[in-house]
């Protein structure tokens, strides 16, 4: 057995109560489905004094889809998102992404919020205490060097969420809330602004701040999709992934968004590729040229299974295939 370290479990019944608890106890962490956090805790990566369990929060359970857009509560399960017909119809990239997270049984547990706030991953970090002690600790936990890139001063742990590239491609905004000591303060930001290119300080949440949900714009005419590369057909995290959303108007591509996952410490918007595609007519030659630009700005290090070069290559191939599929 890998026993969990001791903690006090708080089970608030409202968002306010949860935010107050998180505000009051600096050593508390929010717990959603637990499929990321509890694994890390069993490995001794986090030892919070308290866990604030979000399962009782009705505010996080909302799932609203209407012609103007959608609001997906942070507490909604991935399997619900995967199986929802309206999401599949209007936001297929999200549906596809939710359906390839881990395994079906984990999708019954993991939440959208947990997937959006997922920790970054690295081969030197996601290991037991025994292993890390034997190998030597690293920057992200207990150590003072990065073992994947010893000359660098930062952490390159990889942001491996499947739904986030899809959500960003679809134009999602994150709704956040925190307790300022007197009242609940809400704010909404474009989802991509939630992430930092830093494996340690991966997420731009204030202390005690929670993701309440994700808002998606109307899906009129949007085509979207998600492709993920992993070693096995299930269970595995992505080694590279691509989400694309766009409209087709008069044979040309509009509002094109291409977002790459699992190649850096944050999701990567492939802006050069997007510029080239915007307004253009799809053709095999164009797509081939675009593919060259994919991942131009990412330089993954060797901290996952598979070589960095191959992971980039996979992102290119998958981007091309996805674009071909969506423009067909």
């Amino acid at each position: 057995m890998m026993p969990l370290p001791r903690f006090k479990l708080e089970r608030p019944q409202s968002l306010t109560e949860a935010l107050q608890l998180l505000g009051e106890f600096p050593d508390a962490l929010p717990l959603a489905g637990g499929t990321d956090l509890l694994v890390s805790m069993k490995q001794g990566l986090y030892t919070p004094g308290r866990l604030v369990d979000l399962k009782g929060l009705k505010e996080l359970a909302t799932l609203e889809i209407n012609p103007e857009g959608a609001f997906l509560g942070a507490g909604v399960k991935l399997s619900t998102i995967r199986d929802n017909c309206l999401i599949r119809e209007r936001y297929p990239a999200l549906s596809e992404a939710a359906g390839v997270v881990a395994s079906p049984n984990i999708q019954n547990m993991g939440t959208l919020g947990g997937n959006v706030c997922l920790d970054t991953r690295c081969w030197y970090f996601n290991q037991s205490e025994f292993w890390r002690n034997s190998k030597g600790y690293c920057l992200k936990k207990d150590g003072d060097i990065c073992r994947a890139a010893p000359s660098a001063k930062r952490c390159f742990a990889v942001f491996s969420s499947d739904t986030v590239p899809a959500l960003i491609a679809l134009g999602a905004r994150a709704e956040l809330a925190w307790w300022d000591g007197e009242s609940t303060i809400h704010r909404e930001i474009p989802l991509e602004e939630l992430y930092r290119e830093d494996g340690i300080h991966r997420i731009a949440l204030k202390r005690g701040e929670l993701l309440v949900g994700v808002r998606l714009p109307a899906a009129h005419g949007i085509r979207s999709g998600y492709l993920k590369y992993r070693k096995r057909g299930a269970i595995d995290y992505p080694l590279a992934s691509v989400a694309v959303a766009m409209r087709m108007k008069d044979g040309t591509m509009r509002d094109v968004r291409v977002v790459l996952g699992a190649l850096a410490s944050s999701p990567v918007t492939a802006s050069e590729a997007m510029e080239l595609l915007e307004g253009a007519q799809p053709s095999p030659e164009l797509l081939a040229r675009v593919t060259e630009l994919i991942g131009k700005r990412t330089s993954p290090v060797k901290n996952q299974a598979g070589s960095p070069a191959h992971r980039k290559q996979m992102a290119r191939v998958y981007a091309q295939r996805l674009l071909t599929r969506l423009t067909a």
């Binding site: 479990l9 509890l38 369990d53 079906p104 049984n105 547990m109």
Partner: peptide, 16 residues
């Protein structure tokens, strides 16, 4: 099975 859905009991807190 938790309410009919398969879940992993090793990652589910008993309290939940």
């Amino acid at each position: 099975l938790l309410d009919g859905k398969p879940v992993l009991s090793c990652l589910t807190l008993a309290a939940d």
